[in-house]
Write a protein that binds this DNA or RNA. Structure first.
Lengths: 134, 134
DNA sequence: TTTATTGCAAAACCTTTGCATGTAT
DNA sequence: ATACATGCAAAGGTTTTGCAATAAA
């Protein structure tokens, strides 16, 4: 069910590619998707949208605060719907590539303090763990 | 002062490119360098070593545990001499690109506990902060 | 001598961009 | 009508690879 509300609120025109991509985020059981992942979803949906457009839309969504982009390791960046503001970390399974999120206010507090002691104000931080399933 | 000891200890042949690159790490005032950075050092040194070789040597060094590779954001990976085992985080200046290291045992402890609770054993983790100089 | 290493150029990979065409408002 | 969005293909930046030539042991 395409919903253009969020798009308009974000000051973005309600175009077909943008609505479709937003839908994919909403309908996907996988929260974290790369541009390529989304492109494949579109193809599976018989939706002809160019990969370049996917990248452009994702960049606009990121700017508008609709999605968050995270560079996981060296490979592709993944995007996720921006529910809430908590800057969570990612735990990636070395076996399956599955991504889990986590958040620890104490860690965040400590990071901010460390940066402060080094003379910085934290603009952004990322925590990524790679682990084996026990 | 080229030193082939560490190379031989690592089971790597003491070739000219490998010794030279190891020297660059030792002599550089900058601890974190990209492959391109190292390549430029070599050129400045009138040393003709191909960029492909730099990448190959760095990969071998990483495997041998001589250096650590860290993907900083979307761009290039940086390499640093692997002194000690502490898996430190990186704080990068948004103004200068300067890289500071930090380590907090409490954060590490918490990350491990979080992973455990999610059913994982941490193989590796990276923390990267981007900050403004105060 | 034998096996590993290098250099070069080409390819791979993810992402961005130029430009003409198409579309939302 | 007008500004913005799209598609395609080409280019960008970083990293890897194939292969013949070269050097370490």
């Amino acid at each position: 069910m395409p919903d253009s509300t969020d798009l308009k609120t974000s000051g973005l025109k309600a175009t077909f590619p943008r609505m479709k991509i937003l839908d994919i985020f909403r309908d996907s059981p996988t929260r974290h998707m790369s541009a390529e992942d989304i492109y494949k979803h579109l193809l599976a949906d018989e939706t002809e949208i160019g990969l370049a457009t996917v990248y452009r839309v994702l960049a606009q969504f990121e700017q508008a605060g609709l999605v968050k982009r995270t560079q996981l390791g060296a490979g592709k960046a993944v995007y996720e719907l921006n529910d809430g503001q908590r800057n969570h970390g990612h735990l990636i399974s070395l076996q399956t590539g599955e991504v889990q999120e986590f958040y620890d206010p104490e860690i965040e507090k400590r990071l901010k303090r460390i940066a402060q002691q080094l003379g910085y104000h934290v603009a952004e931080y990322t925590i990524t763990m790679y682990g084996d399933k026990r």
